[in-house]
Design a protein around this nucleic acid. Structure first.
Lengths: 333, 333
DNA sequence: CTGAAAGCGCTTACAG
DNA sequence: CTGAAAGCGCTTACAG
């Protein structure tokens, strides 16, 4: 591929007049650490010669020898989801800084696919796995963990696995408290997918705050984390009884769907129905009435997840990380 | 990692009582092709034994030997962009069917980053590259192509490189003809990024149709392919003179931004201003007034791109692929 | 400090 | 048809 004869460790060694062992040792030692392996002059010659020749270590060869690939696999429900795409950007960025490369793949939240895609990544000899698609029941993850694979969760927590997530219980509470402070009393929740901790925790936080305020228990409707899902859930909600005076959608896209339904029915937002989303997606501020939402640190979650995995790979036992959400008040509530 | 002692070709060979060579040959021959390497009985024993032992070939070892990694690198402007995320899904899906794994990374349309990220992928010994972020000037791609790296473009064409794209000139024309047929005469274009063929071709097709109809030349404003970009471009448009009676946004998200500005100014869509987007993104149909748009085959583009790259890797010379767009008429025009 | 040697798990001419 | 042997490009005990 590369056109010319590839330059290997041996090429550099021959060119400098030392053994490949020495070149390997020097090139793998950062800064002055290389002084262990040769005189300052030799080290300098090796480094400059390697650069001049355009030497690029072959990671496959190193991986074969060390049984460490420098590869990490990432599973997400779907990369089309802005939230997961953003989390993945954080993962990739953090991984690059650690000298790690990442594979992503969509599991579509389907257990069979979670299994097969994980296997494909293990076949590629990844050093570890990041799951952005954990289910609360953690059946699939248990299977994989049982094989001794280092893994961390991101976005959705589950069981006792190490994870980097948003404090979604707090996020739900922030939303409820804001609504309650504005005098809303008949609230409802578009909760998202039942098997996801994001859905579960945001709803739990919201309900707890409502209960603490002694307000009528909010109705809860589940459905996909996208506009169509929000639309459908809202229709279900409106079909099933009194119109609520506030809706908390556990996801901005679901909120966008809800907004459409409300306006179609002639309900004014926020006058008739207040609306709060979750994540603070760019489109949130572009809505006709800018969306009030709970901002989650998507990008940072991704970065922290890869940090946690690196710690795990180094043999340490990192603590799960709970990042703080933040209420962003705009027009809809 | 894998807990137990890893099972290698040698493990299987010992277990069956043949040489590793034979196991390798048999396992790499599909179906009856393996008959070249042994009796039906032996082949059968090798295959079942490998499966029983859970043998998984080590791709790094194979890559080292064959100088073929089975890895492909994909560069996109940004994975957060739904369009690119969808194209990437097509790429990954197609690649998996070819037994290829893919890396994606964001270039942010920054040439320095295009260079550095490409280099990172080449360092990982990818067999080829897919560029979803080509610029019309193809400077960076020329550099990489000069090194003999097999590559294809997707979404955006450039120079004479093999690409899988949407027929954007036709797409622009479809939009213009629809608007003209509806009696619109003072049209404008939110063109997107000047250096992208998508922007260039959609605009060119639109302008050509307008010229053919003898209508006043549409104003053209450039800007990012997202809601904020569409908002800003629309404000620029409205600040700079007469209100157009139709806007063609070369991207659905830009159309969403435009829609917000128009409504904010009390302009009715489509009564006062017709609006057409591009790509047919899910949110398009969720807008308060569902968006009329030009559907582009995003997913299929991705699949075709990886097919083209595979052909290239097999030494063939595939033709560029131009996929047909389709006008989807909804509420805004 | 430094090199020769072995070996990671494959594939594939080369002999038989 | 089948196996022994070499070698892909690294890293790392092992000697000196």
């Amino acid at each position: 591929m590369a056109g010319q004869a590839p330059v290997t460790l041996a090429t550099v060694a021959r060119s400098v007049g030392v053994s490949p062992s020495t070149v390997s040792r020097v090139l793998n030692s950062p800064g002055d650490a290389a002084l262990r392996w040769g005189s300052a002059a030799t080290i300098d010659r090796i480094r400059t010669r390697a650069a001049e020749l355009g030497y690029r270590p072959n990671p496959q060869a190193a991986a074969l020898r060390t049984a460490r690939s420098g590869l990490v696999g990432v599973l997400v429900p779907r990369l089309q989801d802005f939230v997961l795409a953003t989390i993945y950007e954080g993962i990739e960025e953090g991984a690059a800084e650690h000298g790690i490369s990442t594979f992503v793949t969509n599991s579509l939240d389907d257990p069979a696919r979670q299994r097969s895609r994980s296997q494909m990544m293990l076949d590629r000899r990844v050093d570890g796995l990041v799951f952005g698609d954990a289910h609360l029941d953690h059946v699939v993850i248990d299977e994989i963990a049982a094989r001794g694979v280092p893994l961390v969760l991101v976005s959705r927590r589950s069981g006792d696995y190490v994870s980097a997530t948003c404090d979604d219980v707090l996020g739900g509470r922030l939303a409820a408290e804001h609504l309650l402070a504005a005098g809303r009393r008949r609230m409802a929740v578009l909760a998202g997918l039942e098997f996801a901790s994001t859905s579960h925790d945001r709803t739990a936080g919201f309900l707890a705050a409502a209960a603490a305020a002694g307000v009528e228990t909010p109705r809860v409707v589940h459905g996909p984390f996208d506009a169509a899902g929000g639309r459908e859930a809202t229709e279900q909600l409106l079909a099933g009884g009194a119109v609520p005076d506030a809706i908390f959608a556990a996801n901005d896209f679901a909120a966008i769907g809800a907004f459409g339904v409300l306006r179609d029915r002639g309900l004014r937002v926020p006058d008739d129905v207040a609306l709060i989303g979750y994540n603070d997606t760019p489109l949130a501020s572009e809505m006709l009435v800018p969306l009030t939402t709970v901002r989650s640190p998507m990008h940072r979650m991704g970065r922290r997840a890869i940090d946690l995995l690196v710690e795990l790979l180094e043999g340490r036992s990192p603590e799960p990380e709970l990042l703080a959400p933040e209420l962003v008040v705009r027009g809809t509530a």
